[in-house]
Design a protein around this nucleic acid. Structure first.
Length: 430
RNA sequence: GCGAGCGUAGCCAAGUGGUUAAGGCAGCGGAUUGUGGUUCCGCCAUUCGUGGGUUCGAGUCCCAUCGUUCGCCCCA
């Protein structure tokens, strides 16, 4: 065990698991493209200052979780801890705002946070996310939530809960913040230590505390919803009405605050009952100030990110992804036959079949054993006799039926073979 | 960064101080040198994450270290 292992918090996704990933990615891509979202790919590392300015210097993500290092040119580089900042940077840098209208973007890929790994949390993890830039309409909020819901539903996930809140605009929040501090200060000594600390730095996050006594104290605390100005309040009501008319269940949770500084108005989380402590599968919200804060034109925006590892944890609980089955397994023995088998395999692939060629050169018996385990519908057999007569034996593994075929007539049999594979699969299931 | 549990083969594991480290799955070879799925036989850990210590003797006890799991914090 002196050999090199994957770094803590990273892991390999092996072939047996990759089916889940491919399924998630194809479902997401399909739904997003039908909703007129376009993919954007941004670099995996950025200038450190992008995240400091975008996410907020006081947040834990920036304060203690970033993979930051100096490159050989003495620049401070950070592996992206989330996707929004990079997308917004690209949006500004390439003048996408000048194209006017609304930009609907989506992205996917690895993110990096230096945290202690646990269930549903790794140092390198993967997200798919969307960002709608340039719309102030509450309908944009509803749209992104609806899309997230559709993706999760299409994948067959159950026991999910959408939690919704509005944290208003920055003025609303400032007023609420003062009110909350005023309410909590007399209880300061009773709060859990973390919350005492947060009272001065980031009081809103006390709302999230898991400490029971802190939560008791919070029972009578003022609610953010009472501090929304009429416009903020109307916006929030519209989002809720639209979700209702879409038939998307949700729960308003006035305690829901998000850990990143850029959020405004709508914030939401989709959580699962079937995960451990890290139950949030999808989270997002509106961030009307971020684009301007990063030096771009004043542009309202809303988005979310889905955590793929958590999603796949849930998928694995549902049902196993059936392993991909190949059509044909090619068995051969002896010099001329083995050479012809290479050509045969390639010919079949060019006709659109999936074909595995046995490379072992071992006895036919062993090769058949492997053919059987491969899950192929049939195998082609090439030995000295076939090589000599330019034929090939085709054996159907389910029935054992076998026939000789002239190599030259294989291509003309493509449709027939396709049909026979389908038939043998259909029977195999019954 | 803090707390707790766990590290025996590719995987699942027995073993709780005393000769050669059970068993199962997978894999490989043979019975079956041109025909699979069953069966039978054989092979597959000089060594128990690593280093040190206690002991006549350590996979087993102690310390350290690394890894891992779950939780806190935080977040997708």
């Amino acid at each position: 065990m002196g050999s090199i292992q994957a770094l803590r918090g990273t892991r390999d996704i092996l072939p047996e698991e990759i089916g889940y990933w491919q399924r998630v990615e194809s479902v997401a891509q399909d739904i997003l493209s039908k909703a007129a979202y376009q993919e954007i790919r941004t670099p995996i590392f950025e200038q450190t200052s992008l995240f400091e300015r975008g996410i907020g210097e006081a947040t834990d993500v920036v304060g203690k979780e970033m993979y930051t290092f100096k490159d050989r040119g003495d620049r401070s580089i950070t592996l992206r801890p989330e996707g929004t900042a990079g997308v917004v940077r690209a949006f500004i840098e390439h003048g996408l705002a000048a194209q006017g209208g609304v930009q609907r973007l989506w992205y996917g890929g690895p993110m990096f946070r230096y945290e202690r790994p646990q269930a549903g949390r790794q140092r390198q993890f993967h997200q798919i996310g969307v960002e709608v830039l340039g719309s102030l309409s509450p309908r944009a909020d509803t749209e992104v939530i609806a899309i997230a819901t559709q993706i999760l539903q299409t994948l067959g996930l159950k026991n999910l809960h959408l939690n919704l809140n509005s944290i208003g605009n920055s003025e609303d929040r400032q007023h609420y913040r003062e009110a909350l501090i005023a309410y909590l200060t007399p209880f300061k000594s009773e709060l859990d230590p973390d919350s005492q600390d947060r009272l001065s730095r980031n009081p809103l996050r006390i709302l999230d505390s898991k400490d029971e006594h802190t939560q008791e104290i919070l029972q009578a605390a003022p609610s953010i919803l009472d501090y929304l100005n009429p416009d903020s309040k109307t916006r929030f009501e519209q989002v809720q009405q639209q979700l209702t008319s879409l038939g998307i269940p949700y729960e308003v949770n006035p305690r829901l605050v998000r850990g990143l500084d850029y959020y405004t108005h709508t914030v939401f989380e989709i959580q699962s009952d079937d995960l451990g402590a890290q139950a949030t599968v999808c989270a997002g919200g509106r961030y009307d100030g971020l684009v301007a804060q990063l030096g771009g034109p004043d542009t309202p925006a809303v988005g979310w990110a889905i955590g793929l590892e958590r999603l796949i944890l849930l998928l694995q609980q549902l049902q196993p992804v059936s392993p991909t089955r190949i059509d044909f397994y090619v068995v051969s023995k002896g010099e001329p036959a083995e050479a012809q088998a290479v050509v045969l395999a390639q010919t079949l692939r060019q006709q659109g079949f999936s074909v595995e060629l046995d490379l072992s050169g071992s006895a036919f018996g062993k090769q058949f054993k492997r053919a059987d385990r491969s899950g192929a519908a049939a195998c082609f057999i090439l030995g000295d006799a076939e090589a000599e007569t330019q034929t090939v034996q085709l054996k159907w593994l389910a029935t054992g039926k076998q026939e000789a075929i002239a190599q030259s007539s294989l291509i003309s049999m493509t449709e027939l073979l396709r049909q026979q594979i389908a038939d043998s699969r259909a029977e195999g299931k019954g």
